[in-house]
Amino acid sequence: MIEVLESLWPLFVLIVAGYYMQKRGFPGQAFWPGAERFNYFILFPALLFKSLATAPLNDPALPRLLTAVVLALAVCSAGLLVARRVHAWPAARFGVMLQGTLRFNTYLGLAAIGGFFGKEGLLLAAVMLALLVPIVNVMAVLALSAGRDTSLKALLLPIVKNPLILACLAGALVNQSGVEIKWGTDRLLALLAGSSLPLGLLCVGAALKPGELHGEVGALVTNSLTRLLLVPAIAFGCAVIVGLPAIERSILVLFFALPTAPTAYVLTRQLGGDSHLMAGIITLQTLLSAASLMLVLILVV
């Protein structure tokens, strides 16, 4: 338990610090949008590219890991579709519930995995991201656009322009080509990657909106507990079914135990979803994950 606590508390200190920095206007309100964009388009892609370019893509456990990822997504998606039918959710609400259940905070996830599992964990997490990011993004757009005419171009353009997806593809291509990253490029990527997660966690804190935690308490709590406790239990079951080794199983469960992504709020607003509910879910899940991630790690590691 002490090891888990030591791995997690620094991450949440940065999140809390980001919240209070933004609240007090330090270093300025204009800083946070620029910092988030710089991280999203430059620093974080550098981290993903570097990780995938050196990842052991010939690892025999990888096909089983990716199979478990797809199986867990399929089970969760089926449950969401049943819940939508039962509750008759419109697209504006269904898209929020889906994002609250399936999207994940990549900054917190990679920081936690890197702190607990080291470089090997980061490599496996990067491979998972290469599969999860495009699938979950497509599902989110489809859910928020249900019932509307959505062209293939409108659906795919945000995906093919996503810097995280492009970085994953580029890293995988370099990996398979056998090209060696040298002449200082590896050091440059390491410097950029090392800056990404601390800045990302500060931005997560700055994006929290405690003022949105009112109104639909039942929906907020139900969605948060589903994401933070039920979904990782489903992921664990899928990992057991496909026979994942211990480390891969723990990383899979941890990834599916993460709070939802702060960027879900932006997509929800762009596509006319219930942004008030989305902001509340993001905030509540992030706050509760300080305890739930510790519980999940203690149980599965």
Rank of each mutant, 00 (worst) to 15 (best):
S7Y: 01
L8A: 08
P10C: 11
F12Q: 03
A17M: 10
Y19I: 01
R24C: 00
G25S: 10
Q29P: 09
P33Q: 04
N39E: 07
Y40G: 12
F41E: 10
L47Q: 02
K50E: 14
S51N: 14
L52E: 10
T54S: 15
P56W: 12
N58W: 05
D59G: 11
P60F: 12
A61K: 05
T67S: 12
T67P: 00
A68R: 06
S77D: 02
G79I: 09
L80P: 06
V82R: 04
V86R: 15
P90F: 10
R93S: 11
F94Q: 11
V96L: 03
M97P: 03
L98F: 12
Q99K: 06
R103Y: 11
F104T: 04
N105L: 13
N105W: 06
G109R: 05
I113K: 07
G114R: 13
F117S: 02
E120G: 12
L129V: 14
L131H: 00
L132G: 00
P134R: 02
V138D: 03
G147W: 07
R148V: 05
R148L: 08
R148H: 05
T150S: 13
L152F: 12
L152N: 00
K153C: 05
L157C: 01
N162D: 13
P163E: 01
I165G: 01
L169K: 03
A170F: 06
A170G: 14
V174W: 10
N175D: 07
G178A: 09
L191W: 11
A193D: 05
G194H: 12
L197T: 09
P198W: 11
L199G: 10
L199M: 15
L201T: 08
G205H: 04
G211K: 02
A219S: 15
S224D: 04
S224Y: 03
R227K: 15
V242D: 04
P245R: 08
F255D: 06
A257Q: 07
A257M: 08
T260D: 01
A261F: 10
A264E: 06
G272K: 08
D274F: 03
L277D: 01
A279R: 10
G280A: 05
I282R: 05
L284Q: 12
T286E: 13
T286Q: 13
S289G: 02
L293M: 14
M294A: 15
V300N: 14
V301S: 14
V301H: 12
